[in-house]
Design a protein around this nucleic acid. Structure first.
Length: 371
DNA sequence: AATGCGGGGGT
DNA sequence: ACCCCAGCATT
């Protein structure tokens, strides 16, 4: 590093320290978790905000705190009550981790949220970002956060073109974030960086005209702030054809199965089924899956619907068929549990987004005639 | 270091 | 049709 470069860098650092917190204090959004900032509230918010946008989180956050107003209440939550609160939010391991961590806090920390960074970091579901966020925002400790927003802001301000998917680059950026932290104001500084990234230094069309840092921003001065951060190209996601069965018994109850806790969408309920194998006809797939999963022989009827849904790492077409049991009684062979449930009661159980489309369809259909 | 993990909104 | 988001756990 030459001296001129260091000088330019220090100029940006000084500008960040001088301008960012004042800008934040006058421009910050009024968000629920910024009021009454207890460790518990900060923790729940940070967990929900992991890879999830603010607008989507807000209603979930309010409901969740109403349902589980304290660490102890969360620790004692049932799986269904917990997952119902998270239904539709995605990354369901976050909810399971929250409850597991709450139980640890009750058992090992007397029900008080731990203050020590290492103790926070040791809780399930808490990584370096969340530990730094809780330590700084809730306890006023001097830890700098590094999340997607901070990475974008800092790489642009310094025109730093390291590949942000690399660990070495992340370490460099963490040290940059550490360097602009003002002792005693870590919480405000962290939020200021994130708020700038979330409201001004946007991924596609940054609002540089409104940015308090534009005059020192190396990316902006160079004329292309959106060149940063530099990321490696993504690969395209595979597609799966999935079949599922809706079985209604004589009492008008529907058979639902609960996914195993360790599986994707773990703990959620679903209409039983699975992935179609190569060359397999969809009705055969559904019959096979119900035999393997629940030990029942079924007759496949008409197709009810097809739901198309995109996950981050693959897409599915969910083919849903009406079925009748011809042989055997359900047993939880490849699932955590099963239940016969009236259509009106389906809403009580947590489902994934794809299966919620099926629930909706059944709610409509029940007013007409089933099958 | 690389990969798996949901869902939604913006462009 | 992408892109990415207040990341973490596992391998």
């Amino acid at each position: 590093m030459g001296a001129p470069l260091d000088q330019a860098k220090r100029r940006v650092q000084r500008a960040i320290k001088r301008r960012l917190i004042p800008w934040f204090l006058t421009h910050q959004r009024d968000l629920p978790w910024r009021r009454n900032r207890t460790p518990y509230r900060v923790w729940i918010a940070e967990s929900m905000l992991t890879q999830t946008r603010v607008d989507q989180v807000i209603p979930y956050y309010r409901r969740f705190l109403r349902a589980f107003p304290s660490i102890r209440r969360l620790a004692g939550a049932s799986s269904d009550a917990l997952m119902k609160q998270w239904e539709g939010l995605g990354y369901y391991s976050r909810a399971r981790n929250l409850r597991a961590a709450a139980q640890i806090i009750v058992a090992e920390h007397g029900g008080r949220f731990p203050r020590n960074y290492e103790a926070i970091r040791a809780l399930p579901g808490v990584g370096p970002y969340m530990a730094a966020a809780i330590a700084s925002l809730a306890f006023g400790q001097n830890y700098a956060v590094l999340d997607g927003n901070v990475i974008r802001v800092l790489t642009r301000l310094f025109a730093y073109d390291g590949d942000t998917s690399k660990g070495a680059t992340r370490r460099v950026l963490q040290s940059v974030a550490d360097d602009v932290l003002i002792p005693g104001q870590a919480g405000e500084g962290n939020e200021a960086l994130m708020e700038l990234g979330a409201t001004v230094c946007l991924p596609r069309n940054p609002l540089c005209a409104h940015c308090p840092m534009a005059s020192v921003c190396a990316g902006y001065q160079a004329g292309e702030p959106t060149a940063y951060p530099r990321r490696s190209p993504k690969k395209k996601v595979p597609h799966k054809e999935v079949g599922a069965g809706v079985i209604v018994n004589r009492k008008g109850q529907v058979l639902i199965a609960q996914r195993r806790a360790e599986a994707m969408l773990g703990g959620l309920w679903e209409f039983p089924g699975g992935t179609c194998e190569a060359g397999e006809a969809m009705p055969d797939c559904v019959a096979r899956e119900l035999r393997e999963e629940l030990g029942i022989g079924v007759e496949i009827g008409d197709r009810l619907m097809v739901v198309r849904h995109a996950y981050s790492h693959f897409t599915i077409a969910l083919h849903v068929y009406w079925c009748r049991i011809r042989k055997g009684r359900p047993r939880p062979i490849e699932c955590a549990d099963y239940r016969w449930c009236t259509i009106a009661d389906l809403r009580q159980y947590p489902f994934s987004r794809a299966d919620l489309h099926v629930v909706d369809k059944l709610m409509m259909a029940r007013h007409v005639q089933l099958q």
